[in-house]
């Protein structure tokens, strides 16, 4: 029974079993191990090819057992590669979702769970969405608002964090701590997301 690809499978299993919508710490060690194993397989392929050529045989005429061994190593590299990408891709999906949930600033505790490259990816993605929404060269509308259809057009909110004056369509509102205000839904939503105010039901 071969244990080729077992590390790769562990990598995918781990992300598969993690709770949806969470980002477990990036498993740098296992990723490295899978990469190293791939390079090891590749060296074996080169060795086998070298041996065949040394005997003056062309690859066309290689013995079936040599061809089989090459193919096994080759498939093992492909399998490892797929595991790495499935892992990276699933995590990338979750990293992108953050942009829509928390905005452009990556919360510190989450940042620690990401790899260096993932943090860069988040920043780039954040900027990408901003460019798309922008007035210049973009569509000129904030598309992160209204994740669900508008229902009540005004919502009542209580201020949790002192924020001072806010200019709204209805005029200026003083967001002093613990005061309650009636705001337009789209104006209230970013404040709710940031935790500045909470909705009063």
């Amino acid at each position: 029974m071969s244990n080729f690809g077992d590390k790769a499978a562990t990598l995918v299993q781990d992300i598969s079993q993690s709770e949806k919508g969470t980002i477990p710490p990036y498993n740098d060690e296992l990723v490295r191990a899978v990469v190293d194993e791939s390079n090891e397989h590749h060296r074996s392929i080169l060795r086998l090819i070298g041996d065949i050529q040394e005997q003056g045989t062309s690859l066309d005429a290689a013995a079936p057992e040599d061809a089989a061994a090459i193919l096994v190593h080759h498939q093992a590299v492909l399998r490892n590669k797929r595991a790495l990408l499935v892992y990276l891709n699933e995590r990338a999906d979750r990293v992108r979702a953050l942009r829509w949930e928390v905005g452009t600033a990556l919360p510190e505790d989450l940042g620690e769970s990401l790899s260096h490259s993932e943090r860069g990816y988040f920043q780039q993605y954040s900027a990408l969405v901003n460019r798309y929404q922008g007035r210049r060269g973009g569509v000129g509308i904030n598309i992160t608002l209204d994740p669900t259809p508008p229902k009540e057009h005004k919502v009542q909110v209580r201020v949790l964090q002192e924020r001072g004056e806010l200019v709204t369509r209805d005029g200026t509102v003083d967001l002093a701590k613990n005061t309650v205000h009636l705001l337009w839904r789209d104006e209230a939503q970013p404040l709710i997301t940031e935790g500045v105010v909470e909705m009063v039901v």
């Binding site: 013995a63 057992e65 096994v72 499935v86």
Partner: peptide
């Protein structure tokens, strides 16, 4: 990129080697 498709391929299958394997 499908996780379950990947994991399904982890299933062990008995085979007979017709050629050897160096």
């Amino acid at each position: 990129f499908d996780i379950d498709s990947f994991l399904a391929e982890q299933t062990r299958v008995p085979v007979v080697f017709n050629s050897g394997c160096t």
